[in-house]
Design a protein around this nucleic acid. Structure first.
Lengths: 206, 206, 206, 206
DNA sequence: AATGAATGAGTCTTCATTCAT
DNA sequence: TATGAATGAAGACTCATTCAT
């Protein structure tokens, strides 16, 4: 990494920090600079304006996290280990502040704005990742016939986002935990569902 | 009395309008006043500050919609008509601007703020409503054994919120439609699941 | 008193209350009305504007107190009982809020303003009262030759005002008490000074 | 460093100007900026809010003047030269606007406010200065036995403040002059009072 | 006489952004 | 590259005052 890119990154990291600790409205040039330990003017040397900082932050945090998610979920084909992995990843998200930063950016994005476009591109990436995993999971399962994978993937992303939002407003950290516990139970049941077979009358066999 | 309540309501209606058309950040005393056709000062005659306007707006829009939802979902006990009803209600939400207003308020609420408390109270109401309906739906179904109703109800609310958020940022109205279509398919399958039986013996035998 | 005058007085009493409890800046039409238990509009029925309320309040409180002072100091010709009486009057002033109201009005009066004129007129009255008493006190005393009564009277009023101001900013109620104690000591000494005689050598006589 | 301190000082000087010419109520961010020839925003770059400007102004003007007073009164041990020096200092105070600024700040300070605390601290300094001088003056004088120095010092400060206040509301500049003339007469008499010492050469007398 | 809703001007304050150094 | 002072355009909010009832 060159000097310039590291300066850019310092700003982006400071922006994530600012977003997660002060919220979007509290993320001003001054608050970013204060958290990053540099002068406000620096921001304008590396970015045209704050909007650009926000879109860049969105891309930055998303890439970082997606890389991690892909690595952790690479070989997963069953629901139970999937849920287990997601639980860990969620904890990481939470602790790193990324989850709050994304939450704030998504919330602040006005429809049609460049930030909204950036966030839409990012969530699209997450939908694609969810599609891959879902496809793997449903392969050969009877439920697969009922489910349109892209739609379900989007639902999964939507749910994830919404859960964050609810946690954000009521601060009840036990709710995501309960959700993961519930998901684990459903996952166990799901993994026990028999795989799909060619013949429509399995009773004959037995 | 009519005068007083109508002045307050005029402000709240203008606030909903402002939230849905300009977003939270764009909902200033001036923009509310402009949309409502009154002087900015009026707002401060009826409310202590904008925060109070926002929390009141949250309560106002939530009550209005919940009433409508309860009426429309009163007798529903099957998944198919439930999804059908929700589709209609969603269309109403969308057209009225309520959905956008809530989206903006939820998004803008800082954790721990009075607005967050108000929004948490409101979403709690929606969770309760979802619980009632889910309980009705799962009664006697084998799936009911796997599912914790409050957790599932919260998931439903989270999903609804998240779906709005995604639509908000990518403006793709076809996605909720696809989601409803998918939900309809699942609902049909769900309604066909055999109900649970009282008698534990015959099942054992066969 | 007619109805009208009692309404006026209700306003003036509320204004004194507001001045002493909220200060000049906090004495708004609304705060006066709230303290008096009437609608803000009433004020403008009886007075042209708030300035008029303030000048009327100055006159009202001054008259009330001056009456009381004159009554209490009528027959006083010696320093010791004078100080004793002033001590009591000061306690009354303090408790009634009049002292704070005057303090605020004096402080708020811009040079050249109608309020300043009103306050100047009022303080002039107090100077005249002080002159009367001082003249009585100094009659026949050798100190009388050194002292110009009007100037000393003004000094007394100035001192009284300034002492209030100091107490106002540091809230130390023990200071006026200490001042009265000191004054009492000086008064005792003063009363013991021999009265003036024609001849400079009384010793000769004896 | 020079830059920074000069920017702060420019603001403080403008604040003194604004206070002395427009009064406390008229000393707004705008009026300060207009008088100082800078944008209102500058004020908030150097101070958190106007209150901080006011307390800083109080400290600034007080320090400036106290320095001057201490210098001018350093060697003074007699009443006559003291009064003469005070007369000059008062004229300076008047002309510089400091006296008006202090008057406005003292008057505007609400009991218990930070400004009141600042003003109380300042007046305390003046009381200490007065104590020093009074102690020097009374040393060896019989009057010293009757007078509690701190109380008398406070009385002196109170009188000074009150005299300013009276001048402020009636604009009669001849009054302070008359007061100084009167004070000069008393000072002359005071300086002629015999010192307290037992043995100023008793042998001569006998 | 009284009410209380409404207005509009003015205040403090915040910030993105610029720019001289 | 970096700094940090300065600017100007808002925004929230307050309040004297008016006016229809």
């Amino acid at each position: 990494m060159t000097q310039r890119s590291s300066a850019r990154e310092r700003i982006l990291r400071a922006a994530i920090l600012a977003l997660s600790s002060h919220g979007y409205a509290g993320t001003t040039a001054r608050s970013i600079a204060a958290l990053g330990g540099f002068a406000p003017g620096v921001i304008y040397y590396h970015f045209a304006d704050l909007d650009e900082v926000f879109t860049a932050t969105a891309a930055y945090t998303s890439e970082l996290r997606e890389e991690r998610y892909r690595a952790a979920l690479a070989g997963v084909t069953k629901a139970v280990p999937l849920i287990r992995a997601l639980r860990t990843l969620y904890a990481e998200d939470l602790e790193s502040g990324h989850i709050e930063a994304v939450q704030e950016l998504v919330a602040a994005a006005r429809p049609g704005s460049p930030l909204a476009a950036a966030m839409a591109a990012q969530t699209r990436q997450w939908e694609l990742l969810a599609e891959e995993i879902l496809a793997r999971l449903l392969r050969g399962k009877p439920l697969g016939r009922l489910v349109n994978v892209p739609t379900a993937a989007r639902a999964a992303v939507a749910y994830y986002l919404g859960m964050q939002t609810l946690t954000h407003i009521d601060g009840d950290a036990s709710r995501p935990e309960a959700a993961f516990a519930q998901a684990a139970r459903l996952a166990a049941a799901f993994d026990k569902l028999p795989a799909l077979r060619r013949r429509p009358r399995p009773s004959r066999r037995s």
